[in-house]
Design a protein around this nucleic acid. Structure first.
Lengths: 129, 129
DNA sequence: GATTCACTTAGCACATCAGCTAAGTGTCTT
DNA sequence: AAGACACTTAGCTGATGTGCTAAGTGAATC
């Protein structure tokens, strides 16, 4: 395993479970529904044509990933969204978009310079990871 | 199935495969490596302690999701990132963050009003999906 | 032309996932 | 107290995914 700070490894595991949780359309629909506010399991399930125990398994995946939290109130379980895990993905995207765009900026600058001089651009060197 | 515009269904399927592709640490590491620039399969594989055919299968998943593209140049295959699928996730996050934050804003406004008046807040009503 | 390199293809074993039904449990209503 | 409601638990089946080894193929090098 590549050496990491412990925090980085924890975050990588979070990314595993968050991306995995969101890779299923049923679970993504649940997250989308919950952006409008908390809901009971029954309300959430009503929008899906699968058996209730199956649906509950999907909620379990969302809860283990941290995307939602639930609490039992009498005989109903109320579910609400947790913003922090979405921020983990957003952070990952932002960091990599910045790297990607920084590289595009350098390519654009190089292309602009070479257009002015009329020379063909040299090959872009690959970098080790 | 809930009625969608065809474009929306296509995007939902894209979200399935993109989130799924990124749920695996090996594949995410490949995407991260490629933000620094194109690389050959051999270079990418060198950073991973799995068999080459297994690694190639991961690249296949990334390519089918659209996150990367590759082309054969002589006997080496060069892989590069495609930004568009990351934008699909970013768009999804942005749309849902906006909804979530709009709802938080309303709650904050309500809390501020009620702090001024000294009354307890009424329960927040759940909404149908 | 032979050899090496860089994949590519085939197929196996095992684990996990997503669907289901049936039965059970605790809470609320009658 | 009985019945209904809202989950909860258990276990099954089929599909999918991730790891592997072995063998094959085409391009570059010797």
């Amino acid at each position: 395993m590549r050496p990491h700070a412990p925090k980085l490894s924890f975050m990588a595991n979070q990314l595993d479970s968050i991306f995995s949780a969101l890779s299923d359309p049923t679970r993504r629909a649940v997250v989308e529904a919950l952006t409008k506010g908390p809901a009971t399991v029954g309300d959430l399930h009503a929008a899906h044509d699968i058996a209730l125990p199956t649906f509950m398994r999907h909620l379990g995946v969302l809860e283990r990933s941290g995307l939602v939290q639930s609490e039992k109130k009498g005989r109903v379980r109320v579910v609400h969204i947790e913003a922090a895990p979405l921020a983990v993905i957003e952070d990952w995207l932002t960091r990599h978009k910045a790297m990607w765009e920084a590289r595009l900026d350098r390519l654009e600058q190089l292309a602009t310079q070479l257009e002015a001089s009329g020379d063909p651009p040299p090959p872009e060197k690959g970098t080790d990871t």
